[in-house]
Amino acid sequence: MKVDALYREQEQLAKKAVFYDAFGKLDSIAGIDCSYYGDLIIGGAVVIDLNTLEPVEKAHTILKLDFPYIPGLLAYREAKAMISACRKLKSDVDVLMIDGFGTNHPRRCGIATQIGLQLEMPTIGVGKSFLCGNIRDDGYVYQGAERTGKLIYSSRSKKPVYVSPGHRISLDTSVELVEKCMKSDRIPEPTRLAHEYVTGVKNTLK
């Protein structure tokens, strides 16, 4: 499929995403990340208890890479492995926290939005570097007049993470959950643990 066609597909998918809290009580959250080894991609999911921030289950999958790196189209490269790992989980998961972006994306459809739509689950994107929009003094990222993300700092880092809702969750609740999941590291526990997990799996392949 040509890049322009994928851009149009993202624009259509973005219209299906909703940014209100479509869930009840939250007890668990899964961090989702991936890593690369040669022509393989490792998708990993780590479920944590929201009260203790301790891991309760892990699952991963290893697939052949079948899409090149193209800025703005990361979901077409990584989402399949991430979704496959999620589907291996036996635990009930209330929200997914994904290493990537949600609505704070050039076409309002980052990887967190595409995964949320495919799984019909609440998703939050947590990016480690600035992607797009304008950062204002209030700490929010604006695209036009719309607030699509917010910068969140941990107590021990001068570098922020960029939080944006993916699907079935509001920006305010996304920010609240990321702040709740912060310990001493710059990265919130769900995606930090997921990163450690997929890195560990990659090391076993070496």
Rank of each mutant, 00 (worst) to 15 (best):
K2M: 05
V3D: 06
V3Y: 01
V3S: 02
A5N: 03
Y7Q: 13
R8Y: 12
E9V: 14
E9T: 13
E11A: 14
Q12W: 11
K16P: 12
Y20G: 05
D21W: 09
D21I: 06
G24N: 10
K25H: 08
L26C: 03
D27N: 12
D27C: 06
G31A: 08
G31Q: 06
D33M: 01
D33Q: 05
D33Y: 02
D33T: 05
S35G: 07
S35M: 01
Y36N: 07
Y37N: 04
Y37H: 09
G38R: 11
D39A: 10
I41E: 12
I41C: 07
I42V: 12
I42Q: 07
G43E: 06
A45N: 11
I48F: 04
D49F: 01
D49V: 00
D49K: 04
N51Y: 03
P55M: 01
V56I: 07
E57R: 03
K58Q: 05
H60S: 09
T61N: 12
I62C: 15
L63C: 14
K64P: 11
L65R: 14
D66W: 05
F67M: 13
F67P: 13
P68I: 10
P68T: 14
Y69N: 12
L74C: 12
A75G: 15
A79H: 04
K80Q: 04
K80W: 04
M82P: 00
I83T: 07
A85K: 05
L89V: 03
K90Q: 08
S91Y: 00
S91G: 00
V93R: 06
L96I: 03
M97L: 08
M97D: 00
M97H: 00
D99R: 08
G100W: 02
H105Q: 13
P106H: 13
P106L: 12
P106Q: 15
I111V: 14
I111S: 11
I111E: 09
T113M: 04
G116P: 07
Q118K: 09
E120C: 05
P122A: 03
T123M: 02
V126Q: 01
V126D: 01
G127W: 02
S129I: 02
S129F: 00
S129V: 09
L131T: 03
L131H: 09
G133Y: 07
G133C: 00
R136A: 00
R136H: 03
G139D: 01
V141K: 05
G144E: 09
E146T: 14
R147K: 15
R147P: 15
R147S: 14
G149D: 15
K150R: 14
I152A: 10
Y153S: 05
S157A: 15
K158I: 08
P160R: 02
P160D: 07
V163E: 02
G166C: 01
H167M: 00
I169G: 07
L171R: 14
S174T: 12
E176T: 12
K180T: 11
K180F: 10
C181K: 07
S184T: 15
D185A: 12
D185L: 14
R186Q: 14
I187Y: 04
R192M: 09
L193K: 02
L193I: 01
L193G: 04
V198S: 09
T199V: 13
T199M: 12
G200F: 08
G200S: 15
V201Q: 07
K202S: 13
K206F: 08
